[in-house]
Design a protein around this nucleic acid. Structure first.
Lengths: 110, 110
DNA sequence: CAAGTAATTAGATAATCGTCAATATATCCA
DNA sequence: TGGATATATTGACGATTATCTAATTACTTG
């Protein structure tokens, strides 16, 4: 029965426990994806595009980097779970994965 | 007079402008400081210590790194403007600089 | 001042990263 | 099927990074 004669665990609430090594590694991976100015601007542009997303062909010019470089950075953002792409014929449309920054937001906040 | 016959600038609100390169670089530097699991746990421990701060001598053991390595990481956090240290005799006490994560929090949020 | 402890700096190494040119793959359309 | 365009991969490069040991500096206290 719950709460009757039960030995309490006295476990520390989640928020009071220090960051575990594995949690820190997961978080660090996301921060690493954001730790480059080109990728930040890339992510910003994708986010601004909303649900519709943005064609990656429109990301090369404003960032003044070569096409392979943009492709590389998009891959990093994708592998970090921050953005996703859907194919529309010849083009790829990128959009932000909802809630992708949840964990980092929680960490950074307070 | 304000608002009377004034030529409107039609300038785009700050939040509607894409990230500038310089702003992106500043942000990326903070994210880079957080892009390492050891530094994340370090920052977490310092933050938990509140205003009192924590002696760096107490940070070596829980992170299982050599003392110079911890010193190096603390320097990175310091140079990123995330933490500060005050000397207390032989020891250095580290604490979080209030509002240090303001900009990153704003970026990450929404 | 001298001894002891805390912290930084120096130097080295292996690994990762950002970038580009060149090449390859994928998709559309005639 | 073949040409055109969009995107990804490869391979190379210089630069940066995380880590260690060893040596140095800073501070306290006897």
């Amino acid at each position: 029965m719950y709460g009757v004669g039960m030995a309490t665990t006295k476990s520390i609430p989640l928020s009071n426990r220090p960051l575990t090594d594995t949690h820190a590694e997961v978080l660090a991976d996301v921060f690493a994806a954001l730790a480059d100015p080109v990728r930040l601007r890339l992510f910003d542009l994708v986010r601004r595009a909303g649900d519709t997303g943005v064609c990656s062909c429109d990301l090369v010019e404003p960032l003044e980097r070569s096409q392979p470089t943009i492709s590389h950075h998009l891959k990093v953002l994708r592998e970090a779970g921050l953005v996703e792409s859907r194919r529309e014929g010849t083009w790829l449309w990128y959009s932000v994965i909802p809630g992708a920054l949840q964990s980092t937001s929680t960490f950074v906040q307070r």
